[in-house]
Simulated scan of single mutants.
Amino acid sequence: MNGVFNGCEKQEKAEIAEEEALDCVHEMDTINHYVGMYPIAAGGPVERGFSQFLMAFLGVMLIGFIFTSPKQRMVVLSVGFVAIAAWMALTIYSSNGFELQNKGYVSALVTSLDQEATGETSEPEIVIGGIAGMLKESLEESGVEVILPSQVEAAKKAGQQSAGADKTHLIKQLKLTYDIDQVKSDSLKPWDGSAFQVMSWHYAKSLGRYFNNPQEIEPMVKNLELAVHLVFYAILGAMALVVFGSRKNSGLLYWLLIVVPIALPLFFVIDYSAWLWWYGHTLNDMGAFSVKPFMPTVFGDGKVAQFTTHSYPYIGFGLMVLMSLVLAMAALLRFKQLKD
C-alpha cells in the first residue's frame, strides 16, 4: 500500500523466452499514455505518503481495544497517538524528514522515475548527435520528454536493482534528480528533504512524464499540497476523537476502535475504485488517440479499446480480509463480554 511495484513474474513457457520478468508498470504506462492516461505512479500520492502513519494509527486503535479499563485504554491511546503525531509531523514538514519514510515507499518513488537505485557505477550515457540529437534536444526544449530504448532498458534494470539499495542511497538518487530539476525551474525551492516537498515534486514529475503541460499540472499539484495539509490535520482530529470516545466501554466512538480496522478492505476497494475512475476520466488531450472517458474494471476482466485488462486481488488483499474476519470475531466476543 506504499507504492507502485511490478507485479509481473518471469514467464517459463516454451513459446516465450524471457531473461528477466517484464516490467508491467512501465509497459502499462507506455501503452496508457497513448490514450491520454497519466502514469500509474500519479495515483494515490497522499494515501501512499501517509500509509505508514495510517497503519500505525490502526495498530494503536487495536491495542487500545484490548484494554477493558477505560483509564488504561485512554493512556495507551494517548501515548501511541502522540508518538504517531510527532513522527508524522517530523516526516512531512521537517527538514530531511523524508528520511523517516519507510524504504518501500522511497524505493517506489525512485523506480517510478526510471532511476537506477543502486550503489553501482552506471553505464556511460549514450550521446546522440547529428539530426537525431538536434531533434531530441528540440523536443525536450518544447516540453516533450524523449525516452530512448537504452533508457527503457536501464529502467528495467533499475526496477530489479532498487530492492537491494539502502534507503540513504535511494534518497540521494531522488535529491540528485531534484537538484537537476531545481536548476531548470524557476519555481522549485532548494532541497530541504521534507516529505511534503518530495511528494509535491514527485507528483508533478509523474504527471509531466508524458504530458509536460505546466498550465494543467500546476493546479493539480496545488490540490495535492492542499490535500496533504487536510489529511494531516484530519488524522490529528481523528486521534483526539478516538481518545475522547474511549472514556467508556460503550457508544459509537468506542466501537470505532475495532470497526475501522475491520472495514479496511472496504476502504481499500473504495479508494482503488475512485482512482480507477480518475484514471479513466482524467485523460490528457495530448494523448495520441482520443477515447471517451471510461471506468476501468475494478475486479475481473475488462477491455479498453483493443486492449484487455485483468484486475484481481492478490495476497495482500486476502490477508486484509482474513484480518477483518478475525477482528470481527474478537469484536463479537467483546460485545458478549460487555453484555454479560
Rank of each mutant, 00 (worst) to 15 (best):
N2F: 06
E12N: 15
E12V: 10
A21F: 12
A41K: 13
V46D: 04
F53C: 02
F65M: 08
R73Q: 04
V76G: 04
V79F: 10
V82T: 12
L90Q: 08
S95I: 12
L100Q: 12
Q101Y: 04
N102R: 15
G104T: 05
V110R: 08
L113T: 03
G119T: 13
E120H: 11
L135C: 01
S142F: 07
G143T: 05
I147N: 02
P149Q: 07
V152R: 15
Q160S: 08
Q161G: 13
K167Q: 15
K175Y: 02
K184Y: 03
D186T: 14
S187K: 14
K189N: 09
W191C: 01
W201I: 04
H202E: 06
Y210D: 12
N213K: 13
N213C: 05
I217C: 02
A227W: 01
A234Q: 10
G245Y: 02
G245M: 01
R247E: 05
L257Q: 08
A263L: 15
Y272S: 08
G280Y: 00
G280F: 10
A288R: 10
F294K: 03
M295Y: 10
V304Q: 13
A305N: 09
Q306A: 07
S311R: 12
S311L: 01
Y312N: 05
I315S: 08
M323Q: 11
A331M: 15
R334D: 04
R334S: 07
L338A: 06
K339P: 00
D340T: 12
